[in-house]
Design a protein around this nucleic acid. Structure first.
Lengths: 216, 216, 216, 216
DNA sequence: AATGAATGAGGGTTCATTCAT
DNA sequence: TATGAATGAACCCTCATTCAT
């Protein structure tokens, strides 16, 4: 079961908004695509209007400045899409209990690496834009933290209870795992690396099996 | 012994160029600072001229377009500054032999985390600009790879010989270590996290001591 | 009945264009006047904007470059104005039958010399611009050729039939007549010569009466 | 005996100037070539400096503005080269006596048409530049007038004396002949027409033989 | 005299934003 | 509400010209 692409989540989310006129939705959709493809500064409002099949004036009807438009694009991603994404991921985490660190890592890894792989373009640019405004960064990361973390920590706790995980702080364990998975993510997104995901995950699992084994 | 800041390395490197007129050096220096502070697109050639105490025409005397100016700023960093930086780091690696993974990680970590910490601003933006052009990414990463890696691998080999490190591929070991250190780097650069570097490094060292212990 | 000035023809033609906004028409009109008065390179887009009572941005709304603006000025002249001009001239040629070479030359000469005289400024510069692009030259001259020539040749043929014109190729006869009339045109346009058109035409007519008399 | 090309005459003339430093001569030569090839406005002083193998400063050593440089290029052409050219042509006119209008026309025509043909590029542009400043036009045409005309008129007078030419004003006769020859010149220069010069000249001669025959 | 770095006014062009319809 | 013409500030860049060496 592959994760739903970011772009689709975004669009579904837009359609749920009763208040927003159809044309404005087209604007947001066009803006997302163009920002993702060329970055914020390199996208003109005219391009957005054209792609959205809308006049330039319409772009400004609701969003008073180009910057507000960016915010409007980012907001649903941060407020709605990411949670949705997160909950999708959470399902993976809560559907069943993992019986080892290996199991956990391979499952998580497969799911998220796939997601990143499928959304390279959007992630690369949107990340860039998000990073430019420090406030946004905070919002965004908090989001992730509050929704996914509990599910993961719960799994950690259960593994610990079964004496299958070292008794360190969940934060610390989480950091190590995320770090290494993210490093592969980076290689994929930034360098378009062609990696053997299966091999990598099994190696990584082996490593954590040792590094995070409970202390006897 | 703290690592030399990027900005100073850049400037020293410029001063070595006999051919480039003083004003042109001022231009490059100003451009680096402004690009680092506000990004490429948000920096005006007029701003650069003003900061460099130079007319706008002068900016264009040598560098025919704003883009060429960016390249001219990046080139010495990639061709000269980074190697210098790398060799500085290499010295740390070759000066002495490490007697454990912990030792290695703490030493490396301290040096590089400090460097990143000191150059947050420059790294954040320049990295952004470098990432925009895929060709540059390749150049840049190859650079790092060829100059530092051998020294690190040499240390690994010696630790293995003394039966103090698991007998995995050096690449694999390197990836794990770098991943986790980079994850802290990221937290510093992107989120301006206030971290207790000493604590972190000792924890990380402990983790690797277990995960990378030789198999009995 | 004096021929309609080029500038008026141009303006009438513009007004016929329903699609083009009023301000854009002002731009074209201003551009024609300025190009004619100072040449293309010596005319600023700002000057055009000012004369047209329009912002500089408006100049570029429709015409993406200054060069396209020149083309846009020249196009109606080539495509519409000249034909109109030509047809006006053709009327003179077809309205009645000429009963001698003298008659023909004096009539043609008066009409066209007057036209040139009235449009000195426009002709002088526009011709210059037209000549810079060889492709345009071709277009332009073909235009003239296809629309006027037949009417003239028809007159020649009738004169020949009445045994009032030498039996040479029409092209050859046309060339001689046009050459000499153009030479006076040139003197008017280029040197602002003050010529006694009536005297000149009667002299010229006399000359042709002899040179082009039918061979007995 | 083909006429000497304009460019060579210009250069020879420069070499005769003792006062002008060698580098300045290079500048003038380069300027002529570039102005001829691309027009005045489209030629930069840097281009001139480069082609002349000279620094930009040197270009301004003697010629204080770009416009003065144009004047300096045009001056020798008007003051020295054209007279030389004219005298060359005059020789053709005075070397022998012509025994008919045909003879005269064919000889003149061949010589001058050839000259124009060989100097198309220079003539086309230089003429353009000359035409832009009305004062220059006057200078230039007077030049031609005073040096060549007498020789031509002398020939006319002799033909008249031998009862081989109509007894009209020399100016009038001259105008007719020059007009028609110039019309062919124009076709060559402007439209790069491929004309059969021999045929044309013999036709033209025939025409004038009739049009300018003495009145019985 | 010659150099070429430096100047800076001004040119063409873009684009976020406004506004009349 | 939607349109798209209009705006004008600001940008990148050019180039004739000056000036220190």
């Amino acid at each position: 079961m592959t994760p739903t692409p970011l772009r689709d989540l975004f669009q579904n989310n837009l359609q749920g908004d009763q208040e927003l006129p159809a044309k404005q939705k087209q604007v947001l959709k066009a803006a997302l695509d163009l920002f993702a493809a060329q970055g914020f500064e390199n996208t003109t409002t005219k391009q957005i209007a054209t792609l959205a099949n809308v006049s330039e004036g319409t772009v400004y009807k609701r969003f008073k400045t180009k910057d507000q438009l960016l915010t409007a694009v980012l907001k649903p991603i941060i407020n709605d899409v990411t949670p949705q994404m997160a909950s999708e991921f959470k399902q993976v985490l809560t559907k069943r209990q993992f019986d080892s660190i290996s199991d956990l890592i391979i499952t998580i890894g497969q799911d998220r690496l796939q997601f990143v792989f499928d959304n390279q373009k959007e992630l690369r640019i949107l990340l860039g834009e998000i990073l430019k405004k420090t406030e946004r960064v905070k919002e965004f990361s908090q989001l992730l933290t509050t929704s996914i973390i509990p599910a993961v920590y719960n799994q950690f706790d259960q593994l610990k209870a079964h004496h299958k995980l070292v008794d360190w702080d969940n934060e610390r364990i989480f950091q190590y795992i995320v770090s290494i998975i993210l490093s592969y993510v980076t290689q994929i997104v930034m360098f378009s690396a062609q990696l053997d995901l299966t091999q990598i995950l099994s190696d990584t699992a082996e490593f954590f099996e040792r590094g995070l084994a409970p202390i006897e």
